[in-house]
Structure formats: structure tokens, C-alpha cells
């Protein structure tokens, strides 16, 4: 009997975007509301996991040709790098700063260096979680 996952596929296609949006929201809102790089990263990773569950690894890979190991490494590198960058400006390691900048369309918004740091955290979390899940599932 051929299995038919059409409902799962359809729901996944919708749900993944909601989850991704929510993950990005958690990530961005972290400084003012509950959330942040870690949780955001985990939620984003869970979106990928849902994709992996609904479809198979090859399909997901075709759709998103990302090497999650590199993503994780890049995340860790960004986190450490922001710390080093602070030293380049003559302040202690991992000092954070923020500026207000006027951006077209959005107008004046505060830009904090902590976002970069948190991005590193998020990338590392996504990369690591998905790497682990993929590695284990490929091991069958």
C-alpha cells in the first residue's frame, strides 16, 4: 500500500512559514520581550526538523542546499568574532554597543551590536541541532 502524506505535506508547507516567522520574531524581539538567539534558533531549527519529518532528507537538501555544519561553525565564529571586534575598538572583549540609525523605509531604529552576537548564537544552535538530527537519521 502506498502511503499518502498529502495532508502532512500541505500542513507542513503552511506551518513551516508560521514557525519560521515566529522564530525570527523571537530572535529579533529578544532584547525587549522574551526570546533571543537561543530560543529563536531552536524554533527555527524545529521548522527544519518538521520539514525533515514531512519530507525526506534528499528533498530538504534540494530545497535548501545549506551545509548545517558550516552554519554552526559560522555561528560560533560570529559570536567569538563580535567579541574580538570589540577589542579592535579598544574596549574589553565582548563589549556591546548600540547606535541609532536612520534606515530608508523603516525610519530611525536602534541598531545594537548584540544582535550580531545573538545571530551567531542562533546560527550555531540551528546548525548544531539540525546536524545532530540529520546525522542520526542518516545512520539508519
Amino acid at each position: 500500500m502506498k502511503t499518502n502524506d498529502v495532508i502532512l505535506h500541505t500542513v507542513t508547507k503552511v506551518a513551516v512559514f508560521i514557525i519560521l516567522t515566529y522564530g525570527v520574531h523571537l530572535f529579533l524581539a529578544g532584547h525587549y520581550e522574551p526570546g533571543g538567539g537561543f530560543v529563536g534558533g531552536l524554533v527555527l531549527a524545529s521548522a527544519f526538523v518538521l520539514l525533515l519529518l514531512a519530507f525526506d532528507i534528499e528533498t530538504v537538501r534540494l530545497g535548501m542546499p545549506i551545509d548545517f555544519k558550516l552554519l554552526a561553525a559560522a555561528g560560533a565564529f560570529i559570536s567569538v568574532g563580535t567579541g574580538l571586534a570589540a577589542m579592535a575598538f579598544g574596549v574589553p572583549f565582548l563589549s556591546q554597543t548600540e547606535i541609532s540609525a536612520t534606515v530608508p523605509i523603516l525610519g530611525e531604529i536602534p541598531l545594537a551590536s548584540v544582535v550580531l552576537f545573538e545571530a551567531g548564537v542562533a546560527f550555531a544552535v540551528i546548525g548544531t541541532v539540525v546536524t545532530i538530527i540529520i546525522s542520526i537519521s542518516e545512520d539508519v
Partner: peptide, 14 residues
Amino acid sequence: MLEVVVLLIAGIGV
């Protein structure tokens, strides 16, 4: 930062 590195190491380990 170090926790992120720990997580990375764990992932690479797996």
C-alpha cells in the same frame, strides 16, 4: 559565547 562553542563541539562530536 562559550556555551555556543560547547554546543558546536557537541554537534561536531555527534
